[in-house]
Amino acid sequence: MGLMRLIGKRLLLIPISLFILVSLSFLLLELMPGNPAITIAGDFASDAEIEKIEESLGLNDPLGARYLSYLGSVVRGDLGRSFFSDQPVLGELRERLPATMELVFLSLIVAAIVGLFLGVLGAYYRGRKVDKATRGTVTLFQSIPDFLMALLLIFFLFYLWSVAPAPVGRLGFSGVSVEPITGFLLVDTLVAGDLNAFVLAGQHLLLPVLALGIVYAAYFGKTARSTMATALDSTQVEFARACGLSEWKVVYYAFLQARTPILTYGAILFGALIGGAAIIETIFSWPGAGSWALTAILSLDIPVIQGFILAAGFVTITVFLLLDVLILLLDPRVRL
């Protein structure tokens, strides 16, 4: 019973958080200096031309009026059109967000597997050689910027060993097209029964997922080591050992204690990666939301920036809601 009420309370918070998010993104972009009309018109435009563009974008209306009209259109599901491509922001988000989500989701799985392996190993052999080796590996992973990791992977796996395809988007220049259902290529190709396209999509995912996965494994590794170290020191573990349980079982019980903070960390990383994958997307010509927002920021395409902030915020809020529910289900102590 208490569970449903807690979830209901959280659900009620979502519209409020979204309202704050919309207002903040509107205000922040308003307050920032920089005139998109000048950017659109180019450096050699006359004042009259700039004024005409300002007028057509509605930049001359008073702030309050623009805020209200923006709020109104967001509620109606209209996020505006890009200043430059004139495409509706919502439509483009629908195309690009799944590409990013697929990348982020798989990267986090790789990161979790690699990171947990290193972290648990280090915590179990605390202070010994294995611990030093895993800590060193984690520090190394943490010190490589993700874009450098991507470039190194491209050099070795694409150029030298030809294991992976060239870094050109989700399917390359293969001419293969996939009917979008979920937007997740791996799912859509399986649903369509197109094994060829499935393999192709997987190959193109390999390098960007590895690059992000290895770099972000460091975060999982650090959290896992410290929480597992505490868990392995606890009296429960001592008791489990005293009962004569096998070491595998003991580590498993310790992991049950440590999983909540690790899950929380995963959720935080998920939110961070939606935009954080932007540079990787740029390097791999990935048609995702991050690289789209990046271009928009560099060219002051305000409707696109606002749309991205809203989408990223919405996904983050949803992920945190799911996390809360998951933790409630996994850890009954929180309910008390």
Partner: peptide, 10 residues
């Protein structure tokens, strides 16, 4: 909750 690098770029 906003990604660091994007924020800095913006």
């Amino acid at each position: 909750s906003f990604p660091l690098v994007i924020l800095a770029i913006a």
